Simulated assay, not measured.
Amino acid sequence: MRWAAYGTCVCTAAYGLMKLAQALGATALADKDPLRPDLRERLLARDPLFVASHWILFTAAVVGILLALATVRPWGNRLPRRLIAFTTWALGVFMVIRSIGPVGFGFLGDALILTGLRPPPARYAELTRHLAHWDLMLWSPFFLTWGVLWIATAWHFTRRKGVRQTGTRHPLEPVP
């Protein structure tokens, strides 16, 4: 089951590298971000808050890679198990919920917009439908995959052999 942690690292690295590129001035997929029109304009204009958010998200991605690796590497045993378990589960659930989209974008939100069951604002109807298509084809499947990988990583980490329920491992027990 180490494949889940390494798959999580790949998704996290891809997202982090995209945010790094955007922080450095690239527009890679920036115009496809499912944002409200006013926020989208600020993003494309390189508003300082959005540039800062890209740096923060890049840093969070680096931390995420280390977190995923901590679930399968020996040095991860020195970190608090409950914190790792809680964070990996929470990230997975959050990303799956984002991909489903009970509010806003996500499979459900995109479907509602594209079928006309939730009409977009008339002023931004074309843009909203365009972004819903992109979200349906790219972002929602990506977040679903990424979330499922986080959940699989968390599940494997919490059920790993050689680790006691108290979260401590005997020093002579082998690291799985």
Rank of each mutant, 00 (worst) to 15 (best):
R160K: 10
R98Y: 14
R129I: 00
R159E: 13
G101F: 10
A154G: 10
V163Q: 00
T115P: 01
L136E: 10
R98T: 14
G147T: 08
L144W: 14
R98G: 13
H156E: 12
G109H: 14
E126F: 04
D110E: 05
F143N: 12
V96P: 11
Y124W: 04
A111D: 04
A111K: 06
E126S: 07
P120E: 04
M137E: 09
F157M: 04
F105K: 15
R129E: 01
L136G: 11
P102V: 13
R159S: 12
R159T: 13
R129Y: 00
A111F: 07
A132I: 09
G147Y: 09
F105E: 15
A125D: 07
R118F: 03
R159W: 13
H130T: 03
A154L: 07
R160F: 08
W150M: 09
Y124F: 06
G147N: 09
H156G: 09
K161L: 05
I151K: 06
I97S: 13
F105M: 15
T166S: 02
T115A: 02
W139Q: 15
G109Y: 13
R98Q: 14
V93G: 03
R98I: 14
G104S: 15
I151D: 09
D110M: 06
G109Q: 13
A132Q: 06
I151V: 14
P102M: 12
R123K: 06
L144M: 14
F105P: 15
H130G: 02
F107C: 06
Q165L: 07
V96W: 09
F94Q: 12
P119R: 05
I100L: 15
G104K: 14
V163D: 00
F157Q: 06
H133P: 06
T168Y: 03
P119Q: 04
V103S: 11
L138C: 12
T168L: 03
P120N: 06
S99C: 14
D135I: 14
Y124L: 02
A111S: 04
R129C: 00
T115Y: 03
F157K: 00
L136Y: 12
A125G: 07
L114Q: 03
F94I: 10
A122H: 04
T145L: 02
I97T: 15
F142A: 10
R160S: 11
I100W: 13
G147C: 09
F142R: 03
E126G: 07
A154V: 11
Y124R: 02
H170Q: 11
H156D: 12
F142E: 08
P141M: 15
R118S: 07
G106M: 12
S99Y: 11
R98L: 15
M137V: 09
H156W: 10
M95S: 13
D135Y: 11
P102H: 14
H170L: 09
I100P: 13
Y124H: 05
T153N: 11
E126A: 10
R169W: 00
G162T: 08
Y124V: 02
L117A: 02
R169K: 02
L117T: 00
Y124I: 01
K161T: 04
T153E: 10
G92D: 08
L149Y: 05
L138G: 14
L131M: 07
K161I: 04
T145P: 03
A132P: 06
L117S: 01
A125M: 04
T145F: 03
L131H: 05
T168G: 02
V163A: 01
R98D: 15
K161F: 04
A132R: 08
P141I: 13
A122F: 03
H130R: 03
E126L: 07
E126R: 08
R98M: 15
I113C: 00
W150N: 06
V103W: 12
G147I: 09
